[in-house]
């Protein structure tokens, strides 16, 4: 058996401006507006307990935490269980922390170039949203951001697989997050062949070249 077949996609969660979902559980839930459903970041049960200061997170951090919670839920893991497992986090997107950088420096200029906001400054790293997730879910294996210019979803899977095969983590939450949408896949040991836990290299072929969250979700829904 190919080594790649030992690592599977255990779950996938996603959200955009009006919907969130879990791919394996075939769930899609509209939220906000007239739905009466609260946004996932206000749903402590979905998040596995209250996330400290989530109201003060920047948008990418908020969505990253929610996508991780949805992926863990999709894999049947509670936030409590995630703290006991060897899980790392890997993130990517196209703009790094550009929005947070603009936000911090604009605020600093408005303050007369005398004092920056420490609160805004802490989000000016591409790994900051991932760090918020590591704190809430107790992810102790690794935290890094890897960006491939123009790469599709397969690059995120390749990098996550490399970390697992290198022994840096038993499981990886692989996240692609922007300020309006995010998706997270939980990779880890599973029984390949079952549609409920597809091998990473099978998923990889399906999502190759796909860049949008909705595009990846559509492809994943076909394979799960």
């Amino acid at each position: 058996m190919n080594d790649h077949l030992k690592t599977t996609v255990l779950g996938a969660g996603w959200l955009d401006a009006g919907t969130f979902g879990c791919v394996r559980r075939s769930e899609r839930t509209a939220y906000g507006g007239k739905t009466g459903i609260q946004p996932p970041w206000q749903n402590a049960e979905l998040l596995g307990g209250p996330v400290k200061n989530i109201g003060r997170f920047d948008a990418v951090s908020r969505l990253t935490c929610c996508a991780c919670a949805l992926a863990l839920r999709d894999a049947g893991l509670s936030a409590e269980e995630s703290r006991k497992l060897d899980i790392g986090i890997l993130g990517t997107n196209t703009d790094g922390s550009l929005d947070a950088n603009r936000s911090y420096f604009s605020d600093y200029l408005k303050a007369g170039r005398k004092l920056g906001s420490g609160h805004l400054f802490i989000y000016t790293l591409p790994t900051s949203p991932l760090a918020e997730a590591t704190i809430h879910f107790g992810l102790k294996a690794c935290n890094l951001y890897i960006g491939h210019d123009g790469g599709g979803a397969e690059t995120l899977l390749d990098d996550a697989l490399l970390l697992i095969e290198d022994g840096q983590a038993a499981r990886i939450l692989a996240v692609k997050a922007a300020s309006s949408e995010a998706i997270c896949l939980l990779l880890g040991p599973g029984k390949p062949g079952s549609g409920k836990s597809p091998a990473v290299n099978d998923v990889r072929k399906f999502v190759a070249g796909e860049k949008s969250v909705n595009g990846v979700v559509s492809k994943l829904e076909k394979i799960f």
Partner: peptide, 19 residues
């Protein structure tokens, strides 16, 4: 080649060497 960006706060370069 297209290359890649690795960012891991103040451990970025060692994370890149590891990668």
């Amino acid at each position: 080649g297209k290359g890649l960006v690795v960012s891991a706060a103040c451990a970025s370069a060692s994370a890149a060497v590891a990668h």
